[in-house]
Structures are given as C-alpha cells and as structure tokens.
Design a protein around this nucleic acid. Sequence first.
DNA 1: GTCTATACTCCGATAGAC
DNA 2: GTCTATCGGAGTATAGAC
Lengths: 198, 198
Amino acid sequence: MTKYEPGHKEATREKIVTTASRMFRERGVRATTVPDVMEAAGLTVGGFYKHFESKEDLFCAAFDEALASTKRSNDKARGEVSNEEWRRRTAERYLSEFHRDHPEAGCAFAALCGDLQRAEPEIRQQVQNGLVGLIGGFETHMSGSGPEAREAAWRFLAQMLGGLVLSRSVADANTSTEILEACRGMDRPPSSASEIKA
Amino acid sequence: MTKYEPGHKEATREKIVTTASRMFRERGVRATTVPDVMEAAGLTVGGFYKHFESKEDLFCAAFDEALASTKRSNDKARGEVSNEEWRRRTAERYLSEFHRDHPEAGCAFAALCGDLQRAEPEIRQQVQNGLVGLIGGFETHMSGSGPEAREAAWRFLAQMLGGLVLSRSVADANTSTEILEACRGMDRPPSSASEIKA
DNA sequence: GTCTATACTCCGATAGAC
DNA sequence: GTCTATCGGAGTATAGAC
C-alpha cells in the first residue's frame, strides 16, 4: 500500500495516457488493445483497471491529451506574421510529408477520423470543444471579419484535414506528395487558379 | 451440387458484397463482422468462405462496389452547366445533411477514411485508382488549365471530404450544420471572404 | 500499485452434413 | 451452395497474490 512514493500512481497514469494517445493515433482505436498499451508503457494488463474504468475511458483521456499536445505545438509556432503568411506556414506544416508519415504525433482529428465519426456523445463533445477552440484561433488569421472569417476558418481546416487524410490513403508516394502540394495552395480557389503561381 | 439454378452463386456473392459495402461504411471495417454481414444478407456464416478467401478479400470487393456506386450517381447527376454551377451543385450535394446522416450510402473515402489510412497496399492502390479517376472528372470543371486545374480539383475534393468528416464528428447539430454550410463556399478562399456574399 | 492468472465473450476460419 | 457446429485465437475485464 505504501510501497511507492506519492505521485507514483499519477505518473503511471500519465505514462499510460500518453502511450495510448500515440498508439490510438497510429493504429486506430479498435486495433489498439489494452494489453498492447500497457506493455508499450512498460506495464502489464492487470493494473489497468485501477486507473481507468474501461478502454473507452482511456480513449477519452488519450484524446484529450492529443488535443492538448496539438494545442501546445500550435501555440509554440505562433509568431507575429501577416495573416497570409500565417496561413502559408500553417498549411505547410500541416500538409508536410513529416506530418503525413507520423500520425502518432500529429493531428488527432485526422488520425482518428474514422473512430470519431462513430464515437459516443461524450467523445463527440470533446471533438466539438477541441474544434471550436481551434477555429477560434484560426479565425483571427482569416481576411474577412466576423461570420465570414469563421466560415473561412472552417474551410481552411477542412481543406487541410481532407488533404492530409487523402495523402495518407494512396499507394504511390508521388501521388501522395501531389495531393499535399496541391492542398497547400490555400488561397487559390477552384475559380481563380491562374495568376498566383505557375 | 445442382440444387440451385445457374447464376445463383453469383447473385449470392453480389448480395453479400453490396450488404458489406453498406455495413463497412456505416460501422467501419473492424466493427463489422463476417457473421453480421452474412446475417444481414439473409445467410449464415458457413457459406462465406466459398465466396471469399478472407474478410479482407470481401473488403476489397465491397470497397470497389462502393466506388462504382458513387461513380454511377456522379455520372447520373452530370448536366450541362457552367463550371461554377457544377461546383456549387456538387458541393451542395456532397455537403448535404442527407449525405452526412447516411454514410452507408455515401462517399467511401469519407466513411472509411480511418481504415483506408492504415490499409494494405492492395486497398491503397484501389483508393488511388478511384481518386485519380474522380479527380480527372473534377478537373474539367475547374477554372484553370492543365496542372492548375488538377491542383484545384484536389483542393476542391479535400475541402469537401474534410468538411463532411468534421460535420459527422461533432456533438451538436447546429455546429455540424455550420461546418457543412461553411465548406460549401468553395470559391471563397481565406483571403477574399468579403464581397461575394454576406 | 502492480503483478500473474483466468473467466467470459466474440471473431475469423474450417469441417462435414444435407 | 448453404447449412450447423466447432476449433483456435484474441480481447475486455476481473480475482487474488505480493
């Protein structure tokens, strides 16, 4: 009962959560088993249910962790640049080959999109809170004002998310890169793909 | 051996494939079991492996069926309209509440995005072939020419896909609709969200 | 607090009757 | 060609030792 120093259990829990967060993003929720997570965390299955009520409970915590992690890296990259430059940099980072190849450390919405679409209300509420917060930040870097900027922010996010997911799903590396590069061109809608760049 | 009329096995196989195609899109691949599919098709598990080598084999066939089905409905909706009008109509149909609420009858890329990102090479090749074919059609409705139109087509598809997936993942119906409506504004990039519409 | 061991359920796949 | 029955494996969750 008192064999471990105080805070040990909390540290263990956090270790499990961060490990699960990466594994869920890499393999998907259903393909990630509780024994797998515990082993990857250097533990065994037995102790798991002293930390979490269920696998779903773990997923809630892990998804939150992934969102927080994304938010941290977003905040870190925040500089004082023009809106256009901010969009260019953000898209370049999001639609990079590195991000494509490392879902376990990347955007939770993209990596878990299959699971989130069918998730329970509790998770969907987390998704919503995460997205609304994200969009609130994006909004300030769009050109319109008020509702227009918000709409533009949703489109911005949707195009990035869709591009990343598509680039991760095709067989050929060249096609995958083609998708990434095409979707980085945020400021060029289907109707004006002319003068901006060759 | 001769208890059933000729063509019966083919018909049974097709029944299994179309049933699976819908169930995979609705529940995801891992959550859909072979017994479930067979029961939904009015059959029992036993006969399954006389039609398919494995569950993965079924998924290949079912994914192909879903692509073909989407292609048929795309071709049907093809009218003689301006590029801008074509994009407006396509986005309106893709980003509709009906499509959002009926993944089992809708876009396979969106419904299966989680599975496709982690699929075997064989499936990824099918994804690629399907996407390239789709983009080839989209291209002709973009405004630029050559590579520019192709880039614009990828962006168009990515924004629709991302918007649909996001709209399916949030808890609140109002937010979901907000996302759909925002992403329908295809011709309004983040940089020019001003004069086009209030 | 974490371990080993196990109960219970369900899935993918096969065997053999009809 | 499709059925019933079952094997083998895996996954969630629990029990009890340390």
